[in-house]
Write a protein that binds this DNA or RNA. Structure first.
Length: 486
RNA sequence: CGGGGCGUAGCGCAGCUUGGUUAGCGCGCACGGUUUGGGUCCGUGAGGUCGGCGGUUCAAAUCCGCCCGCCCCGACCA
């Protein structure tokens, strides 16, 4: 792929915007900053959603739905929260033809309305924990928007839990960070760095925020999921109290965590190449596409019949080892476009495996298989037709693993352990800098001012020992990851 | 809201400096033929308030003013 690290930001943005639209993921809506997610893009989101949801259920969470409109006064109950969100609120002042007594905000996130409900629902320690997730849309009036990465309205899941003890809530926060990490690595094939946010970067109203940070192909960071330990901040603001075992009133400890449609953008920017999307098989809307090839009308029927036979054999297989889903296979029956055109078309859409079948293959009882992750003719191989069931699942897993490993190699080769401020400045031009950090907000602000880079996170996995800050020389016991971000 | 770039057919663009017949090109689209194992080729055709409003002029896509919108960089941020 073109080297976006040495080129202008504009080039990568152009590539991204073009691919997102050409691959049929999304289109701009007439309203500034909002987008239409097209069926192909939505199916990709559904795959992400289902994989996450499966994990939420496995960890004991249930889904519910809370209202879109929130009374303005709810946000004002938590001072950090309202301060953080008020600049980006969409406010409804009129309804049913008359002015409302109290303005309603379109939820930018649901801590407040959910906090209000939890206060009603929770009376006793026996009611805890409450482990609820909701799939919803939220609205944030951002100044600058970008397809999938930052849109005025976006889809996400937000989990909100309440616990009897601080420890339990902290464990929940980290457990969900693990769930996100597991999803990113195993399904989205994106290596992420889980860690804690700095004070200046944490969620408005949280005691501590955690994040998974991914590296895009231009070396920039993308916050791909967050998990917050809210302490008793929202419990006190919304009066979420319960009687404990000793008949004492206690405030609950709460958490919230979310992953949004931004994850679609992360997949595009982490794996894509000059030909377009490269989708991980586990979440690809179409895992295998069959392109039939014929020259004369007489060959057409036989080829299509053989292609349909292959389709039926493949859809009978599981989508991935152990999955309850069946393999997602598409037979491209379009006429009037050449096979070469179809090859390019499906590559643009990132389909992991392509099966080509023509008269020659039928005669020889084999098919040509092309891997999306290996560009051009090098990714093609001949496969005996009898081995489809044995080989296609293996190949899909091979693609899944290969693109993950490629992403790991890219990230690692653009992550630098730095020991001086000059090295840090140089490192963040092309990737991440790992540096000792003492958590000083003023210095963080200065680095941001001079380099545009911020503390992406203080990784959960630390090297241990101690060192000195690269710019102040202060003693430090933790390493932080610095980088430019979206 | 600041700095930079742009706005001409569905998409991508030329034309503007130096005003002058009927505003062009590529892709896409429709029809016919040809082709189909890596984006076939040929022909015919449809498609335009030149972002909007105002001004200068015999004459404006072109010059001037104001406004609107988009993109990139910053502030904001999942």
């Amino acid at each position: 792929m073109a080297d976006f690290l040495t080129s202008q930001n504009e080039d990568f943005s152009k590539w991204y915007n073009e691919i997102v639209q050409k691959a049929d993921l999304a289109d701009y809506s007439p309203v500034r900053g909002s987008m239409v997610i097209k069926p192909y893009g939505y199916t990709l989101w559904e795959r992400i959603r289902d994989e996450l949801d499966r994990r939420f259920k496995e960890t004991g969470h249930v889904n519910a739905y809370f209202p879109l409109f929130i009374p303005m006064s709810f946000l004002e109950k938590e001072s950090d929260h309202v301060e953080g969100f008020s600049p980006e609120l969409a406010v409804v002042t009129h309804g049913g033809g008359s002015e409302l007594e109290e303005p309603l905000v379109v939820r930018p996130t649901s801590e407040t309305i959910i906090g209000h409900m939890y206060a009603k629902w929770i009376r006793s320690y026996r009611d805890l924990p409450v482990l609820i997730n909701q799939w919803a849309n939220v609205v944030r009036w951002e100044m600058r928007t970008r397809l999938f990465l930052r849109t005025t309205e976006f889809l996400w899941q937000e989990g909100h839990t309440a616990h009897a003890t601080r420890l339990e809530a902290e464990e929940e926060t980290l457990r969900m960070l693990d769930v996100y990490t597991d999803f990113a690595v195993k399904e989205a094939a994106i290596p992420v760095i889980p860690g804690r946010k700095s004070e200046s970067e944490k969620f408005a109203g949280a005691v501590a925020s955690y994040t998974i940070e991914a590296m895009m192909k231009d070396g920039k960071a993308l916050q791909s999921g967050t998990s917050h330990f809210l302490g008793q901040n929202f419990a006190k603001a919304f009066d979420i109290r319960f009687l404990d075992e000793t008949n004492e009133q206690q405030y609950a400890w709460t958490t919230s965590w979310g992953v949004s449609t931004r994850m679609v953008g992360a997949v595009v920017m982490a794996h894509g190449d000059d030909q377009g999307l490269v989708l991980p098989p586990h979440i690809a809307p179409i895992q295998v596409v069959i392109v039939p090839i014929w020259r004369k009308d007489a060959e057409r029927d036989a080829v299509l019949e053989a292609a349909e036979g292959i389709r039926q054999r493949l859809v009978a297989l599981p989508a991935s080892p152990g999955s309850a889903l069946r393999m997602r296979v598409e037979l491209d029956r379009r006429e009037g476009v050449s096979p070469g055109w179809k090859f390019n078309d499906w590559e643009m859409r990132g389909v992991p495996l392509r099966v080509e079948i023509g008269p020659r293959d039928i005669a020889n009882q084999n098919v040509m298989i092309a891997r999306r992750d290996v560009p051009g003719r090098e990714g093609k191989m001949l496969l005996p037709m009898a081995e489809l069931e044995a080989q296609v699942p293996t190949l899909l897993e091979a693609v899944q693993t290969a693109i993950y490993e490629k992403a790991v190699a890219f990230r690692d080769s653009h992550t630098y352990d730095v020991s001086s401020y000059d090295e840090l400045k140089e490192a963040v031009e092309t990737g991440f800098a790992r540096a000792w950090w003492a958590g000083d907000a003023e210095d963080e602000a200065r680095v941001k001012d001079e380099t545009r880079a911020t503390v992406r996170c203080i990784p959960t996995e630390q090297p241990g020992g101690s060192g000195t800050c690269v710019y102040t020389g202060r003693p430090a016991t933790e390493v932080a990851v610095f980088g430019k971000s979206y």
